[in-house]
Structure formats: structure tokens, C-alpha cells
Simulated assay, not measured.
Amino acid sequence: MEILAFGVQADEKPLIEAAFHGHHEVRCLDVFLTEDTAPLAAGHPIVSTSVNADLGARVLRTLADGGTRMIAQRSTGFNNIDLDVAERLGLTVARVSFYSPYSVAEFAWTLAMAVNRRIVRASNRTRDFDFRLDGLMGRDLRGRTVGVLGTGKIGEAFTRIAHGFGMRLLGWDVSPNPACADLGMAYVDKDRLLTESDVVSLHLPLMPATRHLIDAAALKAMKDDAILVNSSRGGLVDTEALVTELRAGRFTGVGLDVYEAEAGLFFLDKSLEVVEDDTLARLVTFPNVVVTSHQAYYTVDAVGQIVATTLRNVLDYTEGRRSENVLVPAAP
């Protein structure tokens, strides 16, 4: 059976081909799954998709009409998939429920440190042989307060790094993580966390209850000199409200690896085009903001685990097994 994989990055392709060798043929496409590209899947019972694929109702119907019966998403998040429609169409959907939490946690701290110590500004200056220190002063993290919204596997890994820095730990989650509590984390309500934290980092899934969790009111509650990091899902932050606060001169820094309207932009080369997203265009102009292209997970360790799990999901489907990664089971 030939499996069609959409949205495959150049670094990812050899890992996918090596993993599937001896099991199934796999054809890797660098284009993302959209309404325009969905017809390419015709005749492929199984397709694999990336986190920015469009798996709304119209795309799912196109896939089903073309003979697709199983979707193996290469990500933990699945807010891009209309699961109800998939179930009605008889499509099995599986995801990667776990991969290296250290990849994202370490990158979140990379963003925090980059804006705290003005790394991008310093690097740009030295390329022009400007070695002044004006405007590059940062702050020690030791003794300061970090607020972690979401203390699952990634949030825990992020907290362990913060503990190593010697920071005061505040957490917010529907249920406390005992491992974080053992590190000295105090679980508090969201308002207190935002008010007291010098660094706020988001490690939550995107769902209706968490969309724009960091809205205008939440942003106003934060310290004027706080650092905000989002390496989870773009929709957790109201970007328009964030731009408003940045224009008012607030925040030491903001590090974003995700953006709520990133589909159709991230993972693509838009350097020769006019980007029509005025909010993103404004966001990247602030000197205290670093935006990266949803790369926090992008380590050989994490991607290797993602690919291995995707293969297992495919084999489970073809061999009639059910796993914890299945979001929509096979039709009876």
C-alpha cells in the first residue's frame, strides 16, 4: 500500500522513508493538505498530515470521496481536524499523543532567554560590526518568578529547567502535577499567576475553553516588564490585544513560536510575496518580540519519535489494533 504524506519538511523526509521501509511505500509531498491539494490523495487509503493541514469538513469529504479511510496526523494537537465530520464519514483518525517534551520545553526557554538578553538585536548589530552594549541589558532569572500555564509533560520539563535557574515557581492547571509540586511549585489561580510572574509560559492544548486564554484582560494583568512565551498553540493568545499592549511599550519581551493565523504562512517561504496579514507584519517589527516558525518540536529526537509513532498508528490500523492515539476509531 502506498501512503501519501502531506507537508513533509526536507529534514523529515529521510526519517519517514527509513521508518516506513519494509512496511509500506510512502510518497512524501512538501505541499500541505488544503482544499486545493486534497484531490492528490485520490486512491490512497491512508494519508499522513502535519499540524497545519486543513482537515475541515470540505477537505475530509474530498478525502473520503477519493477512497481515503485513515488519517495519521504527525502531531499531538488536533484542533485542525473536524472529528465529528470524520466520524460521520467513517474516517479513522490517529495522532501522536506523546513525543519528547524536552524539545519544546528547551525551545521555550530559548525564546525567553533570547528576548531577555536581546540576542537577536545583538547578533544583528555585530553583523554590522557594531559592538555597543546600549539597549542590550537583560535580567538574572535566579530569584524571579515564573508562571507556567499547563503543567503536563512539557510544562513539567519547562518547570525543571526553571527550578535549575533558581526561580520561584507558580503553576496553573486543572489538576496539579505532583512532580512540579515536589519542585516547590505553588498552584494558584490564573490572575495571581499573571500578576506575580516575571516570565509567563504557555503549555496548554487549544480548545474552546483555552482559546484566547491570554486576552486583553490577562495581558493587562501582567507586569509591564514581564516576558511572555508561547510555544504551544497560537490561538491561546489574542494577538490583536497583544499588539495593542506592545504598542503601549509594555513587556520586556515576547517569544512566539506559534501564531493563531499561521496556517498558510508557517513552514512556507513567503519572502518574495506580500504578506497580507497586517497583525503578523506589525508583530514582527517590535524590537522586543521574537517570532519563530513553529519549530519548538523540531529536533531529531522528537521528530524521530513522531515518525515512529505515526508508523505504529498506521500498522495498528492495517492490522486491526486500537491504541491510545486513535481519536476516531475505525468504522464497524
Results as ranks from 00 to 15, higher is better:
234 G>T: 08
255 G>V: 03
58 R>T: 08
273 E>Q: 12
61 R>T: 11
144 R>A: 03
257 D>A: 05
298 Y>P: 00
311 L>M: 07
115 V>W: 05
304 G>M: 02
114 A>V: 11
203 H>T: 06
22 G>M: 12
131 F>R: 08
223 K>E: 05
34 T>V: 07
45 P>K: 11
26 V>C: 12
264 G>C: 04
128 D>F: 14
152 G>M: 09
137 M>N: 13
77 G>S: 08
22 G>K: 11
133 L>P: 14
251 F>G: 02
40 L>P: 01
40 L>R: 10
99 Y>Q: 04
11 D>V: 10
79 N>M: 00
248 A>F: 13
166 G>Q: 08
278 D>I: 00
283 L>S: 02
184 G>T: 06
197 S>Y: 07
261 A>P: 00
282 R>I: 06
9 Q>W: 14
46 I>F: 04
7 G>I: 08
118 R>Y: 01
241 A>E: 05
276 E>Q: 00
319 E>L: 08
34 T>R: 02
28 C>T: 05
51 V>D: 10
267 F>W: 09
57 A>S: 13
251 F>V: 04
309 T>V: 02
100 S>I: 04
277 D>M: 00
135 G>E: 06
130 D>H: 15
64 A>S: 13
222 M>Q: 03
88 R>P: 01
3 I>H: 05
59 V>E: 01
195 T>C: 10
256 L>A: 02
222 M>S: 04
225 D>E: 10
317 Y>K: 00
308 A>L: 06
199 V>P: 01
232 S>W: 05
316 D>W: 00
307 V>Y: 03
199 V>K: 07
1 M>P: 03
76 T>E: 13
222 M>T: 05
172 W>Y: 14
84 D>Q: 11
